[in-house]
């Protein structure tokens, strides 16, 4: 049984008076790829923001490598090897492509990922390395966002809606690249609207509905009916 890398227990999240997550429990093992699905507004991005420390959490709610990280700042968590490809890419517009990648390495962690290996994964980025990141196409921007997260040499990488707003052919390219990315013992959480994509790359799946976990299962055995019930809340 592999060790858990991330343990979430009774996680709540709030935006002012509005509660976005209610007692979420979740676990990711080392080397595991987990899918998180759920309709718009279910709380997936909120969950990612809580894990990465962009939202503040109650004590003891999130453990990473058996250490409580619930109260740490986002930069302190990043340095421990947890990185994210955020929803909507969110590249730095004032930085060139190369600088966007370089800043991912700012945490100073050693590992297989470097400018060279990212350029090898996405050769187009080397051709465009001196351009402003915002001048790239959506798919290329997503490659920069992935490369930027990899440059931190994370143990656990979160992908929030990597295919959102991209053409199907680009989505295919990016999913084809995923196995090469998540090899090397890295764990991953993939947030995805496309359920079959999510199931095909993951070993386990969680479904969120209105801030609660409505389903937890193994990706190749979970049934379509269970998913639609968990997804839409139809009884």
């Amino acid at each position: 049984m592999p060790e858990p890398i991330l343990q979430i227990q009774g996680l709540n999240a709030h935006y002012g008076d509005f509660q976005a997550l209610y007692g979420v429990d979740m676990e990711v093992s080392e080397g595991e790829v987990l899918a998180v699905i759920g309709s718009n507004g279910a709380g997936k991005t909120t969950l990612m923001r809580s894990i990465t420390g962009l939202l503040s959490n109650g004590p003891g709610q999130i453990k990473y490598h058996d250490k409580d990280i619930s109260r740490l700042r986002a930069d302190e968590i990043a340095i421990q090897g947890l990185s994210m490809v955020p929803e909507g890419r969110q590249l730095f517009p004032s930085l060139s492509v190369r600088e966007n990648l370089m800043i991912g390495a700012q945490v100073g962690r050693k590992g297989p990922w470097s400018l060279e290996s990212v350029y090898k994964l996405f050769p187009i980025l080397e051709e465009r390395k001196d351009q402003q990141s915002t001048s790239l196409s959506g798919g290329q921007q997503q490659m920069v966002a992935i490369g930027r997260a990899l440059m931190a040499n994370p143990d656990l990488i979160l992908f929030d809606e990597i295919s959102l707003g991209l053409a199907p052919i680009i989505i295919k390219d990016i999913y084809d690249a995923l196995p090469g990315i998540i090899g090397e013992g890295m764990s991953a959480i993939i947030v995805e609207q496309d359920i079959s994509k999510a199931l095909s790359v993951s070993s386990r799946v969680y479904c969120l509905q209105e801030g609660r976990v409505s389903l937890e299962g193994t990706s190749d055995t979970v049934s379509r009916e269970d998913i639609s019930r968990a997804y839409f809340g139809i009884e």
């Binding site: 990465t52 420390g53 962009l54 700042r73 986002a74 930069d75 302190e76 990043a78 340095i79 990185s83 994210m84 955020p86 969110q90 730095f92 517009p93 004032s94 930085l95 600088e99 370089m102 800043i103 991912g104 700012q106 945490v107 100073g108 930027r148 931190a152």
Partner: peptide, 24 residues
Amino acid sequence: TALGRAFRAVSDNQDIAQLMGLNR
């Protein structure tokens, strides 16, 4: 410089800069 890059990144987007390990 790396410092200048950090200045520009924090100026662009404070949250995402924190995710890069930069304490704003």
